Simulated assay, not measured.
Amino acid sequence: MPSHTKGGLSTWAISPVAVGFGLPTIKEGGTILFGDAAARAAAGNCVPFVLAAGACEQRTVIAMGLRTLVWVAIAGLVFRRPLRNPV
């Protein structure tokens, strides 16, 4: 038996949450980085490198969340148990 545990319901629950938090983070960081002066002033003192690194990190989180959802869906379709034959 493998030492790791199966994701199941927790995988389905965490992946959309990761994608859901990642998208607004990228939007807000992009607005501050590439927006007008009013957006930068509203953000206050921030380091652009940290915002850019956070945006890259969130892109990775979104990609991994979507990858997990796709693989779990494929595994559910391929490895689902056949229905019992009614006798």
Score class of each variant (00 low, 15 high):
residue 68 T to R: 11
residue 24 P to G: 11
residue 41 A to H: 15
residue 79 F to H: 08
residue 16 P to D: 00
residue 3 S to Y: 13
residue 50 V to M: 01
residue 64 M to F: 00
residue 43 A to P: 04
residue 20 G to I: 04
residue 72 V to N: 14
residue 57 E to R: 00
residue 12 W to Y: 15
residue 48 P to I: 09
residue 64 M to Y: 05
residue 43 A to S: 04
residue 67 R to P: 00
residue 85 N to T: 10
residue 59 R to V: 02
residue 17 V to S: 08
residue 15 S to L: 03
residue 85 N to C: 09
residue 32 I to Q: 04
residue 53 A to T: 05
residue 72 V to Y: 06
residue 29 G to P: 02
residue 26 I to W: 08
residue 27 K to M: 11
residue 15 S to Q: 07
residue 42 A to C: 05
residue 43 A to E: 08
residue 14 I to K: 04
residue 57 E to F: 10
residue 14 I to D: 03
residue 11 T to I: 06
residue 13 A to L: 07
residue 1 M to P: 15
residue 55 A to G: 10
residue 68 T to G: 02
residue 71 W to H: 09
residue 14 I to E: 02
residue 33 L to S: 03
residue 52 A to E: 04
residue 7 G to F: 03
residue 18 A to L: 14
residue 10 S to F: 07
residue 47 V to Y: 09
residue 43 A to R: 13
residue 73 A to P: 07
residue 6 K to Y: 07
residue 11 T to R: 14
residue 38 A to I: 05
residue 11 T to M: 06
residue 47 V to M: 12
residue 58 Q to V: 11
residue 82 P to Y: 14
residue 17 V to K: 10
residue 14 I to N: 03
residue 67 R to L: 00
residue 35 G to A: 05
residue 81 R to G: 13
residue 25 T to R: 07
residue 45 N to C: 12
residue 34 F to G: 02
residue 11 T to W: 08
residue 76 G to V: 04
residue 63 A to W: 15
residue 34 F to D: 03
residue 51 L to R: 15
residue 82 P to N: 12
residue 5 T to Q: 14
residue 51 L to Y: 07
residue 35 G to M: 13
residue 39 A to D: 01
residue 33 L to D: 03
residue 20 G to C: 06
residue 71 W to N: 15
residue 26 I to A: 11
residue 29 G to T: 02
residue 26 I to K: 12
residue 65 G to H: 05
residue 57 E to A: 06
residue 20 G to W: 05
residue 46 C to H: 15
residue 8 G to C: 10
residue 57 E to P: 00
residue 7 G to M: 09
residue 12 W to I: 05
residue 63 A to V: 14
residue 48 P to R: 10
residue 6 K to A: 08
residue 15 S to C: 07
residue 27 K to F: 05
residue 22 G to I: 10
residue 76 G to Y: 15
residue 38 A to E: 09
residue 84 R to K: 08
residue 28 E to T: 13
residue 80 R to C: 02
residue 18 A to Q: 11
residue 16 P to E: 01
residue 55 A to S: 09
residue 61 V to L: 01
residue 70 V to N: 08
residue 85 N to S: 13
residue 79 F to R: 14
residue 40 R to N: 00
residue 21 F to H: 14
residue 38 A to D: 08
residue 43 A to C: 05
residue 38 A to Q: 14
residue 62 I to P: 10
residue 64 M to C: 00
residue 27 K to T: 09
residue 15 S to N: 06
residue 42 A to H: 15
residue 46 C to I: 05
residue 14 I to S: 06
residue 81 R to A: 11
residue 64 M to I: 02
residue 78 V to N: 01
residue 37 A to M: 14
residue 7 G to D: 07
residue 10 S to R: 10
residue 21 F to N: 06
residue 8 G to E: 10
residue 61 V to C: 03
residue 33 L to I: 03
residue 9 L to I: 06
residue 81 R to V: 00
residue 31 T to G: 01
residue 77 L to G: 12
residue 57 E to G: 00
residue 79 F to K: 14
residue 14 I to V: 04
residue 4 H to G: 08
residue 66 L to C: 03
residue 79 F to P: 07
residue 21 F to Y: 11
residue 47 V to N: 15
residue 78 V to L: 03
residue 68 T to A: 00
residue 71 W to Y: 12
residue 24 P to A: 13
residue 30 G to F: 00
residue 31 T to R: 12
residue 43 A to V: 01
